[in-house]
Design a protein around this nucleic acid. Structure first.
Length: 274
DNA sequence: ATGACGTCCTGCCTGC
DNA sequence: TGCAGGCAGGACGTCA
């Protein structure tokens, strides 16, 4: 599933190929993929716009268009954006096709949970609920020990839940939360208010580390995630716990355990994580 | 304010 | 083989 490193990989690739391109057409296959405004207004507003740059905020991809508009994608669990030169390419589960001269940008989304929005750049927080509640990006300097400690020290929820809370760790998802907790040696079901200073220090450090490694490897492909040319990511080869339930821990050999925390599948090593 | 849980949606896996 | 049912999971809404 696309988390911060996957969305950042897509952002870099899209920025490279889309900057300066003009949207010459828009075809909606599944109208419920359009989050805002109406499908007709979405197509009308997009057509003829030029793409100035591609940004990212948490797991949102933001295509800045001329005329003060932003085209925003959230890929949720299985979304992908495929940039294809061929007009005849049949992309599976294509829900939205943007025509860019002789190329297509296809929003593929098997589960139809992802969304596309067309919003005036100044109005993003009012049209996208939750957008202005996003917390710090884990990779910025401001995401430090003080920041995280202030937000978790009074909380009784399992630390895993708070890492998935976008108002605290903006962009972190299930895979990198599990991997960061493994690298920090912290059990995912620990109540957040039981973490000591040294553990919070480790968690901040390891979360940054694992996200950077994810970006460096072009993201993690477990099932649906694809880069814009259809290639898979490379970080799945470096996973310690995610998707490795019942397999031996790569550090100590103990079987990786699968539990549910807040209805989310969670993997950890019962020996390495305390 | 917080935390637990249901909902959306559909492909895929499991079990009979 | 085929079908039914369960499951995954990010964000958000609801409820206590």
């Amino acid at each position: 599933m696309p988390e911060l490193p996957e969305v950042e990989t897509i952002r870099r690739e899209l920025h490279h190929v889309l900057t300066g391109k003009k949207i010459t057409g828009c075809f909606i296959v599944r109208p419920d993929i359009i989050g805002y405004p109406s499908p007709a207004a979405f197509c009308r507003g997009l057509t003829g716009r030029r793409i100035m740059k591609v940004d990212r905020r948490a797991k949102y991809l933001i295509l800045r268009l001329d005329g003060g508009l932003s085209l925003i994608f959230h890929l949720r669990l299985s979304g992908a954006l495929i940039y294809t030169k061929s007009q005849t390419d049949k992309i599976k589960y294509g829900r939205l096709v943007l025509r860019l001269g002789s190329n297509n940008l296809i929003f593929s989304e098997p589960r139809v949970l992802g969304r596309a929005y067309l919003i005036e750049s100044d109005n993003i927080p009012s049209c996208l609920q939750g957008f202005n509640r996003l917390g710090q990006e884990p990779l910025v300097r401001k995401f430090n020990v003080n920041y995280l400690r202030d937000r978790i020290i009074h909380r009784q929820a399992p630390i895993k839940n708070l890492m998935l809370d976008q108002s605290i760790c903006a962009g972190t998802g299930n895979i990198y939360a599990d991997e960061a907790l493994f690298r920090a040696g912290i059990k995912p079901d620990r109540r957040a208010n039981t973490l000591n200073h040294a553990e919070i220090v480790r968690l901040v450090k390891k979360l940054k580390e694992v996200l950077r490694a994810g970006i460096k490897n072009g993201g993690t492909t477990v099932s649906d995630y694809r880069r814009i040319d259809g290639r898979t990511g490379g970080f799945q080869r470096s996973l310690n716990v995610y998707g490795r339930e019942n397999k031996p821990c790569l550090v100590c050999g103990t079987a990786i355990v699968y539990i549910k925390i807040g209805n989310r599948g969670t993997r950890y090593c019962p020996s390495c994580q305390k």
